[in-house]
Amino acid sequence: METVLYLDELSKKFGSLQAVDRLTLQVEAGSIYGLLGPNGSGKTTTLGMVLDVIRPSGGSYLWFGRSISNETKQRVGALLETPNFYPYLTAKANLQVVADTKQADHRHINKMLDMVGLGTRSHTTFKGFSLGMKQRLALAAAMLNDPEVLVLDEPTNGLDPQGIAEVRDLITRIAAQGKTILLASHLLDEVEKVCTHVAVLQSGKLKANGPVGDILSAQDQLLISAEELAPVLQLLERLPYVVRFAQDKNTISLTLSEGYTSTDLNRDMFAQGIVLSQLLVRRKSLEAQFLEITQK
């Protein structure tokens, strides 16, 4: 598969603060790549560097296998932090400025305004827009010349539930057209719902990356207890599919390797004459998983 964006040991220092620390990752064509991390973890700085507005202190990056130029920029639609427009210009005039810069066809402007639901407001000046409308105008601008890649920084930030749903729906619709999307977010469920791949950042460091299923949907945890814990512990030692277990007073918590469920465990226990008094499957919350990743 073609690599759309490749980061090689990319770093940024602001004074004594290491905002991004030797970040290496690659985004494949067609993926929805989530950049996940708490506020201040270096997501925006990373996007700023690959979008040519923040100068890296070290490392390099390549778009479509080559260094950044006006030509590669025009293949990428991006929305960094806030929607940036001239407040005194109308929605349409603002998009005309963007179309000039991207060398996009001006005939797309009305179509894009319609797509984000601003068709009837094209002659309203930008300063008269609500936050949600501003965000939608920014999405229209980002998609003006039908780019292969979309870079979105916290696209649902500050929106009301309806606005969030609309933007997410828009993203999924765009992704369905086979476009690559790079999405920065601090919202776990957003990344889990929308993305195919994820990189977890903390304090500028890459903590984990890979397909969302591998990173965020870790194995479920089981809690068991029995009258006598000693034979249970002995058996757990010998069961090959138990990844780890730990005793906590009267209960034992354990994780099973992939493909095994509580049924397997219960059957094996019973076969050895052990009757469990409690068997509880606990799905780890996204938050718990995230904390686990970032505290490694």
Partner: peptide, 9 residues
């Protein structure tokens, strides 16, 4: 908008 123009191309 300067930064947006540099982003856009």
């Amino acid at each position: 908008t300067l930064r947006q123009q540099v982003i856009d191309g």
